[in-house]
Design a protein around this nucleic acid. Sequence first.
DNA 1: GCGATTTTTTGAATCGTTTCATTGTTACGA
DNA 2: TCGTAACAATGAAACGATTCAAAAAATCGC
Lengths: 338, 338
Amino acid sequence: MNRTASIKDVATHASVAVGTVSNVLNYPDRVSERTKERVLRAIDELGFVRNDAARQLRIGHSRTIGLIVLDVGNPFFTSVVRSAEDAAALQGSAVLLGDSGHDAGREANYIDLFQEQRVQGLLISPVGDVTDRLDLLRERGVPTVLVDRLADESKFSSVAVDDDAGGYLAAKHLLDTGRRRLAFVGGPASIRQVADRLEGARRAVKEEPDATLEVLDSDGQTVLAGRGVGDMLVQRGRAELPDGIFCANDLLALGVMQSLTMTHTFRIPEDVALIGYDDIDFAASAVVPLSSIRQPTELLGRTAIELLSEEVESQNPVHRAVVFTPELVVRQSTAAAG
Amino acid sequence: MNRTASIKDVATHASVAVGTVSNVLNYPDRVSERTKERVLRAIDELGFVRNDAARQLRIGHSRTIGLIVLDVGNPFFTSVVRSAEDAAALQGSAVLLGDSGHDAGREANYIDLFQEQRVQGLLISPVGDVTDRLDLLRERGVPTVLVDRLADESKFSSVAVDDDAGGYLAAKHLLDTGRRRLAFVGGPASIRQVADRLEGARRAVKEEPDATLEVLDSDGQTVLAGRGVGDMLVQRGRAELPDGIFCANDLLALGVMQSLTMTHTFRIPEDVALIGYDDIDFAASAVVPLSSIRQPTELLGRTAIELLSEEVESQNPVHRAVVFTPELVVRQSTAAAG
DNA sequence: GCGATTTTTTGAATCGTTTCATTGTTACGA
DNA sequence: TCGTAACAATGAAACGATTCAAAAAATCGC
C-alpha cells in the first residue's frame, strides 16, 4: 500500500517529466527556479528517497568502498577505519566495513560480497597470501590498495608503517638517555612486525660500541605474557638486569611494568627504562606513563583512500607503495636516569 | 573493453535463455543437470559475478542491515557489532556499519545513506532523541530496533542491559563479602547508565541496615578521572576510607587501583575491595585482577538481529523490549577480607 | 514582431536482474 | 501410437534511476 515513492511519482505529483526530477537531483542549475521549487515540494510531500540500487545499475558502479580489516577491536585498525571513513565521506563515498577476524574464509566472503556490490575499490589488510585472489579482482577492474602490508609495486598500491624505523627509534631513544644494556621483549619472531621492530633495534644498538641487546621471547603479545617476562626479570640479580627494555607492543610493556613496580624491587625509570609500541590509550594512563612509538593511523587511512581514488580515476594507474615513519612519544617511563 | 560479464553474456555463452541462468543461480533444482553444468561452466569462464544492484532493484529491497553505533572503538560496541554481523551472516544478510561518534550530524548522514540503500532494517544506538526521525523511517517501512536504549514499546523493539540490576549485583557482592562502608565512583549523573547503576547500588545497600553508601563524583569516565578520585581517598585517614568501592566502569576502577596500590598505603582487597563495570580485557590483567560486571554483548547483538528479522517478516509486528541481566565476574580485587 | 539563440523541459532507451505465463520436451500408461 | 502429465526452458516485462537527442519555451537584438 504505502510503497515508497519513485521518481515517477514525484514527476506526476509535480506535473513534470521524470528527466526533470532527475535533473533537480543531479544538475540543479539546469532547471528553472520555479520548477525546481515545485519538484522539491513534491519530493518533500511524498517523502521521496532516491533508490540507490537503480542509480547504481544505471551508472555502472556504486559510491562505496570496501574495507576489510583483521580485527576491528584492535585500536590500530579502529583508528584506520575511522579516518578512512572520514576521508571517503569527504569525497562522497561511503565505506563498507568487513572484519575478517584473521579468518581467510570470512575474508573471502567479504570479497565476494563487495564484488557483488560493485564497490569502487577495495582496501584490505589481508589475512594470508591473497595475491592470486586480488589479481583476479584487479583484472576485473576492482582496484585494490593493501593496508599495513607491502605489496608488489608493479601490481598494487599499498600503505604501511616502517616497523624497522620504529624499532630503531625506540632503541635509539633508550641509548640517547644513557642506557646501554638493552632488552627486546617480543612475541613469535614469525610475525613480520615483531621481526622488523627487532631488526631496527639491532641497527641502533650496533651504532653504540658499548651497548648490548638481549632478546627475550614472550609467549604472545598480551599483558599476561609481559608479566611473565617481567617476573622472570625480577628473579635475576640487579646486576643482571637490563637498564632499558623495549617491548614489541604496549600490552607487553604494561605487563612488564606491572611485574617490576608491584614488587617494588625496581623503579621505573630510575633502575630500568621501559618503552612500548602502538601508543594505545592505556599507555598514557599507566601507573608510570609509558613512552611508546605512535603509528600515524589517521594518515594511513586517509592515504589509503587517496591512493584508491587515484586508481579509480586513472585508466592505467601507477601504483605506489607509501611507507610512513612512526613517531616517538616520550613519557615518564623513559625519563633520563638521573 | 573488459566490462564485467552480465547474465546475458553468460546465457549467450552457454546457449541458453537468461531466465535459465537466473534459475541456476536462484532455483538450482528447477533446471536439469546437463544445462546446469553448462551454465556453471560459462559463469566460471566469463568470471561472472552477479550485479547486486540489479537484483535489488528487481526484488525491491536489499540483503543488508544498517547498524549505527556511538563509537566502534568502545569494546562494548565492538563486541555488539561483531555478534550482530555473525548473526546476520547466518541468515544471509550483511551489515552496513556506521559510526556516529556521538555526533548527531553523522548519525543523520548514515540514516540517509542507509535509506537510499534500502536496507532491510536499522539497528541503532541513537545519539540523542531521534524518535521523530525514526518514526518517519517506520512509516516508510524501515523497521528499526534500538540498541542499548529503552524505547516506547508501542513503536519500537529494543534490546538493552539492565544497569540497575548490574549496580545491585556489584553492591550486593561487596556486601556479601562483608563490606559495609561502600562508595560509588561515577561520572556525571546525567548519563543514564551511571544513574541506573547507582540506583541499583542504593537498592542493595538499603537491604543491609548497617551499610552506608557514599557517592564520589568523578570527572569523566577515564583512568585519569579514577586516579583523581583515588588520590583524594589516599589523603583521607584510614578510618575515613570506604572498605568497598564500586566504580561505574572499569577504566575508573583501574585508575582508583593505580592510586591505591602505587602508594602502598592500602592493599586491595585486604583494606578495600574494588569492583568495576564492563569487564574490559584489561580488567583481568590488572595488577590486582579486577572484579567486574559483564554485559552480555554477544547476546545483545544477536538478539537485536533476531528482533529485526521478526519485524521484517511480519506485516504488523509486535514490538518487544528485551532487557538482559548482566553477570558478576569475581576476581581477586574483591576476595573476602580475610 | 520576427528570426536566431539560449535556456528548459521532455520522454524513450538503457542498465542487469528476477519473474512468470507460455512453449517445448520427455516419460509413461493405455 | 497417442494423450496426458510432469518437467525444462524460454523470453518479454518490470524494477527505478540517468542520459541525451530532440522539442518547446524564453530571451534577445533589431
